[in-house]
Amino acid sequence: MDDSDEKKKSDTIQTVVFPGRFESLEEIGEFIARFAQEAGFDPNDAYAVQLAVDEACTNIIQYAYGGEDRGDIVCTCEVSDEGLEVELRDKGAPFDPDKVPSPNLDASLEERKVGGLGLYFMRRLMDNVCFDFTSDEGNVLTMVKRKEKEP
């Protein structure tokens, strides 16, 4: 067995537990930025991942937990040849993305509502977004951003 390969692999996956409060968002953003850099993303794609994860964590705090300081967000980043996978786990109420209304992006200023924009951002900015809930595990959200192939 090649030790160096084993070490390299363990360097590219990390789990950090953050308290479920808005104050954690900056630290989560820094954690994601570090892995986005490690995955070799350009600044645009790195920003996209940070924005998607920020929106996801805000939704967890607001909707799954129904407020701040009611549980943790367990965040795992994994860099692969394909790109970056971010997994977010929480023990809050089951999140049903189908119940979130789609934002009307063409509405006039007066009729414009910003609700649903977070989920819309997540789906547009990431290549794969998957929501799962089990009574044992709670909510498990997996998002993947693929790296553009080298020209």
Partner: peptide, 15 residues
């Protein structure tokens, strides 16, 4: 960095 929480502020102020 600005998230949808910040965008909501911009829309409210513009209104």
């Amino acid at each position: 960095f600005i998230s949808s929480a910040g965008l909501r502020v911009l829309i409210d102020v513009q209104k």
